[in-house]
Design a binder for these strands. Structure first.
Lengths: 137, 137
DNA sequence: CTAGTTGCAAATCATTTGCACTTGC
DNA sequence: GCAAGTGCAAATGATTTGCAACTAG
């Protein structure tokens, strides 16, 4: 059993060709953060036939199953990544689109405190920084 | 000269009826964070005739001029607010859409450090938390 | 006067959905 | 076999744009 099918089985999703192919793209892509279009193009590049609508459906299912995490960066389209073992946030280069990840326990702790103080039961959060990376300066 | 026309003049935008009306909505709305549709509906409620396309154009011009700030919350549409004097972040209720603002110097400081460490020249950032507010529990 | 602005309708973009057809178990 | 999944094309919702008509300075 390959890694892709194992992942699918683990979350109780039926093992289908499109789901296997899409999971393989996510597992092997050099770029960790991809849009639905990116996945679709990568599939085409591998001569894999999967409809764009299916890519959207499958990514959404993967998200519901917790396999992938959806982000809302600036620019109007969703970006997906395999759900990280450990939570992290992002800094995105506005010139080249390069994404760096980071995790900061202090920030996380402060966030929880703030949510509690404001009376919110926190379900999710998204900290995105935008700037110009070293290579683009 | 009213507050609306002053704001427009200050940033060098021609004083037109739609721009005045839209700025007035932003200045007087009880809700600080509004979508383009919200602004459009508020205008209609005031019996003001402005096309939706113009609302989008004007909000985008206001953003370029620095008068308003655009946010990308979950849910697929942009949300605008008059540019705050002092930076703050947001926590959004996923049930009722209510938005609370907060500012935390510790988080801000950590962000700057992290950006510097990763070699980014920071231009912008967006920290959004999502949860269920006290009223919705 | 005339460059900038608006309204409207049509266009675009990302994403979703209806439905007849296929496939995994 | 049959419910679940897929492809395709059409629908959607947010936002943008082309263009002829208007208006601020």
């Amino acid at each position: 059993m390959t890694a892709e099918t194992q992942e699918l089985k683990d979350v109780g999703l039926k093992i289908t060709h499109p789901r296997i192919k899409i999971m393989r793209i996510l597992l092997t892509s050099e770029v960790r953060h991809v849009s639905a279009e990116d996945v679709y193009r990568l599939l085409l590049g591998n001569n894999e036939e999967v409809g764009l609508a299916t890519v959207y459906r499958v990514l959404t299912q993967f998200e519901s199953a917790g396999l992938v995490t959806r982000h809302h960066f600036e620019g109007g389209h969703s970006v997906f990544e395999l759900s990280p073992e450990h939570h992290h946030d992002h800094i995105v280069c506005i010139k080249c689109g390069h994404v760096e990840e980071f995790a900061d326990p202090d920030i996380e702790a402060r966030q929880s405190e703030i949510a509690k103080r404001l009376g919110f039961e926190l379900t999710d959060h998204d900290l995105n920084m935008y700037g110009i990376c070293a290579d683009c300066r």
